[in-house]
Simulated assay, not measured.
Amino acid sequence: MLIVTEEWKTAHPGACIGLMILGDLANPGFDAVLEQRKKELTVFLKASFPTKEKLYGYGPLPVYTAYYKQYKKTYHVLQQMESVIFKGKQIPAGAALVEAMFMAELKTGLLTAGHDLEFIEAPLTLAAAGDEQYTGIRGREQRTKPGDMVMRDARGILSSILGGPDFRTKITANTKQALFVVYAPPGIRPGTVQQHLDLIGDNIRTFAPAAAVELQEIYTA
């Protein structure tokens, strides 16, 4: 399924990547059970992290913070967690597949990209970025940061850690088969990635009970 390049292994020793393909999907704009799960997740997060200090030290967050700091950036999932926990921001409503993925990110802190498998052209390749350009999920052109983790298909970049997913393969209301990619810099265990993938699948089955795992793999450097 995935070609893991030597340049990725050299640039990110100890890193891992998790892939999961789910089929037989639905992607409603609203699901009542998922909404209830979001409320429960908010309660869980606030109870688990009563202070910012406790949040900042949680599990994988220091790993991502250090990774982003290399590029003079801040880890956006941590910022989103802060907004929900300390600023009273609600977890946004929208396409259920994207919500399910985002909820898992908020609970575990792990970075995930989602893609519509229909628009991906094999082979998939995991590499370290050069100075490259692709159209981001919001339709704006952006450049990769040299050395960043990137995934490509035959047509170009699908996603990167710092730039996020592309526009061409984004999940839509019509998505029936999706690829989820978990980027885990060195310091995050494969077992943690596995649990995160399982959580995404569990969230999705609240509104798409027939969703089936067609592939689930973890690759290490």
Rank of each mutant, 00 (worst) to 15 (best):
M151W: 12
T175D: 04
L41M: 05
T74Y: 03
Y56K: 08
N203A: 02
D202C: 04
L106V: 04
L97V: 01
T74M: 06
A211S: 09
L197Q: 13
R155T: 11
A32W: 09
G94T: 03
Q195H: 14
A210Y: 07
P146Q: 06
A221K: 06
F49Q: 03
Q133K: 10
V182A: 14
I21V: 15
L2C: 10
F44D: 08
T169Q: 02
K39T: 04
Y134E: 10
L41E: 00
G191W: 11
I204S: 00
L45Q: 03
P165A: 07
Q70Y: 07
N27C: 01
A208E: 04
K46Q: 15
R37A: 05
G88L: 05
F30T: 10
P28W: 06
Y219Q: 00
A96W: 02
L41R: 01
E82W: 07
I200L: 04
G139T: 09
A11P: 10
L25V: 01
E132D: 14
M1L: 09
Y58A: 14
A11Q: 14
D31H: 13
A32V: 10
F207D: 06
R143L: 12
V150I: 15
H76T: 07
Q79P: 01
G201F: 01
Y71N: 10
S159W: 02
M81H: 08
P60F: 04
S160T: 15
A113Q: 13
D31K: 08
G23K: 00
E82T: 05
V77T: 13
M101Y: 00
G156L: 07
Q133S: 13
A95D: 08
E214C: 06
V77P: 01
A122Y: 11
R140E: 11
P60C: 13
F167N: 09
Q142M: 12
D153M: 02
T192C: 11
H115K: 12
Y64T: 01
M103R: 08
R140N: 11
L197R: 13
A212M: 12
M1Y: 07
P28H: 04
V43F: 04
K38A: 14
K72M: 10
L61G: 01
Q90P: 08
I85S: 02
G94F: 05
V63Q: 06
C16I: 11
P60A: 14
D166H: 01
S48R: 15
Y58K: 08
T172Q: 02
Q80V: 01
G57L: 13
L97S: 00
P209I: 12
T112L: 06
L55G: 05
F102G: 02
L19R: 02
D166K: 03
E7N: 15
L124N: 03
N203M: 12
K170V: 01
A184E: 04
E141W: 05
C16T: 10
A95G: 09
Q70I: 11
L179P: 05
E6P: 02
A212H: 12
G114Q: 13
A15T: 12
R152Q: 09
K69A: 15
S159Q: 03
E6I: 05
E99R: 07
R37D: 13
V213R: 14
E217V: 07
P186T: 12
H196V: 11
S83R: 14
I137A: 06
A122H: 11
Q177V: 09
G59P: 03
S48H: 09
K38L: 03
G191D: 15
T125R: 15
M101D: 07
